[in-house]
Amino acid sequence: MDMTFGDSELAFQQEVRDFIAANLTPDMKRAESLNASVFSEPETGVPWQRALNAKGWGAPGWPVEYGGTGWTPAQRWIFETECAHAGVPSPTPMGVKMVGPVIIGFGSPEQKNYFLPRILSCEDYWCQGYSEPGSGSDLSSLKTRAVRDGDEYVINGTKIWTTHAHNANMMFALVRTSDEPRQQDGISFVLIDMKSPGITIRPILTIGGDHEVNQVFFDDVRIPASNLVGEEGKGWTYGKYLLEFERGSGIASAKLRKALHRTAAFAESEATGRAIEDPDIAIRMSEAEVDIDALEMTELRVLSALQNGQNPGAVSSILKLRTSEIYQAVSRLGVDVIGTDGLYVEPTRPLHRLNAPPAIPEDELAVMPTHLNGRAYTIFGGTSEIQRDIISKLVLGL
C-alpha cells in the first residue's frame, strides 16, 4: 500500500531504522526468522523489549503518563511496519499489550506503581490464565476457584493452553470467587506469582514440535488479596476488555506481508521449481495480497481510535478473525511452495539453537512448523466461530 509521509514522518521513519540497525543483532534476526511460535523465545524477545524500553518505546499503546510514546497513528504504523520488514523479535504481548492496559484501566494506584514499570522492563514475564479443560470458548463456565481467607485468596483448579507459563514469573487469571445465577458475575481478575507454593506446570508440545503451551495446576495456592484487580465479581468485564486489546492492538498486516513476500521469494526460486508459474499458486498469492491490504486499512482505523483514547471494541473481532485466516492461508502457501522439503523433520527446538547444517535450506526450516502451529490461530484468543458471533451481534446488529 502506498503511504505518503511528510517530513516529520520521514524523520521518524529514519529514527526507527537507525534504532533497529543499532539494536537488532544477527543472532536476534536469525532466531526470529526461524521462529515458528506465536511470539519469540524469552532469550530474544526480552532483550529486544528492554532495548525498546531504554529508548522510551516499550509501550506504544499506553498513555504517556504511564510510559507510552504518544505516537500518532502514522508513527505507530511506521514503527510496526519497519520492525516487520527488518524481522525484529516479537516480544510476548502478555505484559505490554494485555495485562498492562487492564492494570492501567482498573488497577489500584499501588498496582500501577508496582507492576507497570516491571512490565516495561521485563522484570516480570507474564502468562495468561483463562482457558480450562472444558472451558475454552465457553469461558464463563470456568471452575478454578479463589476463596477469600483473611488477607489472602486460596486458589484451586487448573488452566490449560497457557502460553510460556514455563518461562513466566507472573500470571493474570480469571477465577471464580462466587456462585451467581449469571456465571459471568462470579468471576474475578487476579494476579498470581508463579513461584507460589502449590503451582505445577505440565508442558504440552504442539503438532509443530514446539513447547509454547502448558497446563498449570493450582493446589491451595495463596496470593495476597491486594492482587485482586478492580472489584470482586467484575473479572468478566476486565477479561473482555483485555481480549479486545489482545485481538485489536497490533499491526499484523506488516508481518503477514513480510511472510507472503518471503513465500513469493521461495516460489520464484529455481530450488522450488519456479512454483510461481503454477497458476493456482499465483492466484492464491494475489488473493492473499489483496486480503492483507484490506486488513491493513482496518488496522489503521483501530490505531486512530486507540490514539483518541478509545478501546478497540467489536472491530477487534474482525481483526482477530481475518488475521487468523490470512495467516493460515499464507502458511499453507509456504508448505505448497517448498513441496517435499516440508517432509523434513528437525526436532531441535527452538530452531535457532540448531548448530549443524540441516538437510534442507535453513530458511525453509520454519515453514512446516509455522503451518502446523498456525492451525491454532483460529482457536486461541477466541475461536473464529465466537468472533463471527460477536461481529453479527455488535457490528451487524443481528
Score class of each variant (00 low, 15 high):
20 I>W: 07
23 N>C: 03
25 T>C: 05
25 T>Y: 08
28 M>D: 01
29 K>I: 00
34 L>Y: 00
40 S>L: 01
41 E>M: 05
55 K>S: 01
56 G>Y: 09
61 G>Y: 04
62 W>F: 11
63 P>Y: 13
63 P>S: 15
67 G>N: 08
67 G>P: 09
72 T>D: 04
74 A>W: 02
80 E>K: 07
85 H>K: 15
86 A>H: 03
89 P>N: 07
91 P>C: 11
99 V>D: 01
104 I>E: 11
106 F>W: 06
108 S>C: 04
109 P>D: 09
109 P>L: 02
114 Y>L: 11
117 P>V: 09
121 S>T: 15
128 Q>L: 14
128 Q>S: 12
132 E>G: 01
136 G>E: 03
136 G>V: 00
142 L>A: 07
143 K>V: 05
144 T>G: 01
145 R>T: 14
147 V>T: 14
150 G>A: 04
152 E>S: 06
162 T>Q: 05
167 N>Q: 15
168 A>H: 08
169 N>C: 12
171 M>W: 02
172 F>K: 02
173 A>M: 09
175 V>W: 08
177 T>D: 04
179 D>L: 10
181 P>Q: 05
182 R>E: 15
192 I>M: 11
192 I>L: 08
195 K>H: 14
200 T>E: 14
204 I>H: 12
205 L>C: 09
206 T>Y: 07
206 T>L: 14
209 G>W: 10
211 H>R: 12
214 N>E: 13
217 F>M: 09
221 V>N: 05
224 P>L: 08
237 T>H: 14
243 L>R: 09
244 E>M: 13
245 F>T: 02
246 E>Q: 14
248 G>I: 06
249 S>F: 00
251 I>A: 03
252 A>K: 00
252 A>L: 00
258 K>S: 00
258 K>Y: 02
259 A>V: 00
259 A>Q: 06
259 A>K: 01
260 L>P: 00
260 L>M: 01
261 H>D: 11
261 H>L: 12
266 F>W: 15
269 S>V: 10
269 S>Y: 10
270 E>V: 10
283 I>V: 04
288 A>F: 01
294 A>P: 03
295 L>C: 05
296 E>G: 08
296 E>S: 13
297 M>D: 13
298 T>G: 04
306 L>S: 05
306 L>H: 04
307 Q>R: 14
307 Q>T: 14
314 A>T: 09
314 A>P: 13
317 S>P: 02
317 S>G: 04
319 L>T: 07
320 K>A: 13
321 L>M: 11
322 R>K: 14
323 T>L: 04
324 S>H: 08
325 E>D: 11
332 R>T: 15
333 L>T: 09
343 L>Q: 15
343 L>P: 10
343 L>A: 15
344 Y>P: 12
348 T>M: 15
354 L>I: 12
355 N>S: 15
360 I>W: 07
362 E>A: 13
364 E>N: 07
366 A>I: 01
367 V>Q: 02
369 P>D: 02
375 R>N: 07
376 A>I: 07
379 I>L: 11
381 G>T: 02
382 G>T: 06
386 I>T: 06
391 I>G: 12
391 I>T: 12
392 S>I: 09
